[in-house]
Design a protein around this nucleic acid. Structure first.
Lengths: 200, 200
DNA sequence: GCGAAGTTAGAACGACTGTTAAAAATTAGA
DNA sequence: TCTAATTTTTAACAGTCGTTCTAACTTCGC
């Protein structure tokens, strides 16, 4: 009957530090480096304590994914409804941390069913958001929806970010910088074109 | 002095079956599912025997990567010098097996230094090949190299394939099919345009 | 201060990992 | 057929993994 006592202040902060440490580990050493002991050690706690907050490692991964997904969804929404949607969106997906994490999650989902369904959920939601926003603004950029449907533009922008990040991770190549620079110019030109033809 | 006796016939075939099994495992369950015992079991041999052929697991990964890389390089060369370079190239990178493996290798390289340098090598070589070929044919498609430099086109094509594959893996979404279809149309239109302006 | 709830540490489990050592089986070349 | 090189198996090592159990410690609400 008595309502459960609320968690202590230290707890909620510890949980967020756990999520931070997990992200950090995934980015620096890959998702396979994530284990109850390795993550716990990063914030000076013991493995069983981690399991007190996250019963299974899958729970931990899902929590990290959910937190990041909410942030990504919010930022994507904001970018796509900003004055320069394309530019803001490109800057967002160009963040190597965000895109790097996505790569890790996609790979991790490959052999973790629990994560797989969750990744799928997030991916669909994100795609839905993008398609909806793009459908109403692509015309303003002078892009024929017949030739460049929202699905293509969405995949291209996201994929280009993948390629640039993967290239950067693979070695010291200058190609990705050229590609990123060229993409930035292309986006700028499109934004320019859009500005000169206000509401058709 | 006496030259070392040559390997038995069964050996070379066993090695190739080991590489096949490793690829299969990487694609179906992710690179993290690869272990001396799991791979060995797939072709009914024991783990120590695997280590007889590949002293360390890194050696195994590198061998798989090298074999695949040679194939990819050859196919890319062929595609880019075919009658319809862009279409052939797009079809090549659209192969989910190839692109799926790349994703796994990029993720695996994250915490396997030996693999990291090898992946970097392959990536650079592949990129060099693409840039060289694209530099001489992009003009034929009516693409201004100022707006669409080879580096951008290369990253976009490769990245688009990533996005489509990742989407497909994440769940049953129709967006990737729309994107792939739109890309195929775009490529077809470009090939068309090119055909109508032979050698400028 | 008391009792209960929330939090933490220690020890241990069974399963799996990469890898090695040693010995046995198989095969090639003389 | 003999011998030496090649291939294969068995057993075992030290380490890590996820997770659970237990008992202790800390804090909250009264």
């Amino acid at each position: 009957m008595a309502e459960p006592r609320r968690r202590r202040a230290a707890t909620v902060e510890k949980v967020s530090r756990l999520l931070d440490a997990t992200e950090e580990l995934m980015l620096s050493e890959g998702y396979a480096a994530v284990s109850s002991r390795s993550v716990a050690a990063r914030i000076d706690i013991t493995a069983p304590l981690l399991h007190y907050y996250f019963p299974t490692i899958d729970d931990l991964f899902v929590a990290v994914l959910r937190r990041r997904a909410e942030q990504m969804l919010a930022r994507t929404r904001a970018a796509l409804s900003s004055p320069q949607p394309l530019r803001a969106w490109w800057e967002l997906v160009s963040d190597p941390r965000g895109t790097g994490l996505i790569v890790e999650f996609v790979a991790a989902a490959n052999h973790r069913p629990a994560l797989r369904t969750e990744v799928g959920l997030v991916a669909r939601e994100l795609r839905r958001l993008q398609m909806e926003a793009l459908a109403s603004i692509l015309g303003e950029y002078g892009l024929d929806p017949e030739d460049f449907p929202p699905a293509l533009v969405a995949a291209a922008v996201q994929g280009l970010a993948f390629a640039v990040v993967a290239d950067r991770a693979a070695g010291h190549d200058t190609a990705h910088e050229q590609a990123a620079a060229a993409m930035a110019r292309l986006v700028a030109r499109l934004e320019d074109r859009r500005e000169r033809r206000p509401a058709e």
